[in-house]
Design a protein around this nucleic acid. Structure first.
Lengths: 159, 159
DNA sequence: GTCAAGTTTAGAATTATTTTAATCTGATGT
DNA sequence: ACATCAGATTAAAATAATTCTAAACTTGAC
């Protein structure tokens, strides 16, 4: 029960000046990590907060690392990579590949698809109910569909 | 729109009934390259032959390079990369990204989609008519759809 | 507090791909 | 045929994203 260094786990919510849009941000994230069997370390907590506190996001490891720096969270890039992969394996993030060269992680785990902007390399969500895959082919023997990804590539309509 | 629906050539191709014995493989490929505005060099001809002579294929630069070696065609890896990109720009190949880490090129230019085998990282074609995307979302303003990619990820059904 | 197992980290290593700079080749003109 | 030169090829170096390594540090249990 010793308070070893700064464990954010059970700090009093009262001294948190941030507007608590969702009750207690830390305990929620803590539960998420615990539920995923991941030890809630300082850096994992901080990254999880950055990832899941701001709505749906598509980001690369470099982007999250930059985010962390801006937020004065000191984590190495290697940890960002590790953490993203752990979160992905734990089902907290979705990995999207649209562009060899950058791997995106998507915090939106609901059923949905993506627009990909060829020019900028950016991604945006398409709600699941706006795309309908009406027919699917017979799956090879002994195989099961793990996911169907639809990417709508767009580019500026020519003037 | 304006899909360049496979222009085999416009010169009189006597008759290429495609028997095992290659009729005039070179002139066909030569025309393809000329039609694409690419100078028919020895290595481009050889690579095109490897690419387009054997039905639909999904391959990476490394794979094609290995293929070339086996066929006793001496090309550098850099040339393989250059050539694949040129063919892609010229509309002779399709680039598929399903796995950051390897970029595949697909010799099948017809409208179709893909199975992706999560375990092996392999790809296979799904004929266009076996997948139907029934609904598409409104495209962002000023943008036009350049392509819709559907990737059906499969893995072994659990025992 | 002690300890072991799990984490983090800086920096080295790896992999796929691109660039560089030199050299070669194919198309064109004569 | 021969010279010419833009475009093509190449080996080698450079780059970018990501992973690995080994040491140092945390966490959770006792």
């Amino acid at each position: 029960m010793t308070r070893t260094s700064n464990t954010p786990s059970d700090i009093a919510p009262s001294d948190d000046a941030a507007p608590a849009a969702e009750g207690r941000p830390f305990s929620q994230i803590l539960d998420r990590l615990r539920g995923a069997g991941l030890r809630p370390t300082r850096q994992r907590m901080a990254l999880a907060k950055l990832l899941f506190d701001g709505g749906d996001r598509h980001l690369t490891a470099e982007m999250l690392h930059a985010d962390a720096q801006s937020a004065n969270v000191r984590v190495s890039l290697a940890t960002v990579y590790n953490t993203l992969h752990q979160f992905h394996r734990a089902g907290l993030l979705r990995e999207i590949v649209v562009d060899s060269q950058r791997t995106y992680f998507d915090t939106n785990m609901s059923d949905h698809h993506h627009f990909y902007f060829d020019e900028t390399g950016e991604l945006s969500d398409i709600p699941g109910d706006q795309v309908e895959v009406a027919a699917l082919p017979p799956v090879p023997d002994g195989m099961a569909v793990s996911r169907v990804d639809v990417v709508v590539r767009v580019r500026p309509a020519d003037a």
